[in-house]
Amino acid sequence: MAWGAPEGGDIGSLAVTGTANALELRIEEDCLPVAEPVRRTCELLGFDPLHLANEGRLLAVVPEADRELAMEVLVPLSGELLPRIC
């Protein structure tokens, strides 16, 4: 399954994924990429960038057996992937 980040940003997407699949997720927030200008602006304004509405992100949940195929298809499209968040 795959979908774009909802209004809850990256954290919202992961929460929806966990709830829909009856999973408890542990998120290592430092591993999630946030562009430096975005990070600085959010710090200045007191926002958490991982909770903001987010354009241009895709969360894809694929079976481990299909991981390599998913990476082959998605890497050329994005250039920046997180193959696994634990």
Rank of each mutant, 00 (worst) to 15 (best):
N21E: 12
N54D: 13
E7G: 07
D30T: 13
R39Y: 01
A2C: 07
R26D: 14
L32I: 14
A65C: 12
L59W: 09
A22W: 14
V62C: 02
V34C: 01
L81E: 04
V73Q: 13
D10M: 13
E24S: 09
E24F: 14
G79W: 01
M71G: 02
D30A: 12
D30F: 04
A53G: 02
N21V: 07
R57I: 05
V16Y: 12
M71T: 11
M1G: 13
M1Y: 12
N21P: 08
E72Q: 15
A20E: 12
L74Q: 09
E72C: 11
A20R: 14
T19L: 12
L81M: 10
E36T: 06
G56R: 00
H51V: 06
R39K: 11
R39H: 02
P76G: 02
C31Q: 13
V38Y: 00
L25P: 09
G46V: 00
E68M: 10
G9V: 02
G8A: 03
H51Y: 05
G12M: 03
E80V: 15
P83V: 10
E64N: 12
G79F: 00
R40G: 00
E55W: 03
L44W: 01
L23A: 14
E36W: 10
T41G: 01
D66K: 10
R67E: 15
T17P: 05
L23Y: 13
R26G: 11
P37M: 00
N21W: 06
I27Q: 03
N54V: 03
L82S: 04
E55H: 05
A53P: 03
A60Y: 13
M1N: 13
V38L: 02
D66I: 05
T17N: 03
E55K: 09
E80F: 08
A2N: 10
N21G: 08
R26E: 15
E24I: 08
N54C: 12
P76E: 04
R26Y: 08
L69H: 14
T41C: 09
S13G: 11
D48Y: 03
L52S: 00
E7L: 11
P83S: 09
V61P: 02
V73W: 06
S78M: 05
I27G: 01
A22I: 08
W3K: 09
A53N: 02
P76T: 01
P49W: 00
L69P: 06
I85T: 07
E72G: 05
N54F: 10
E43S: 07
V73M: 11
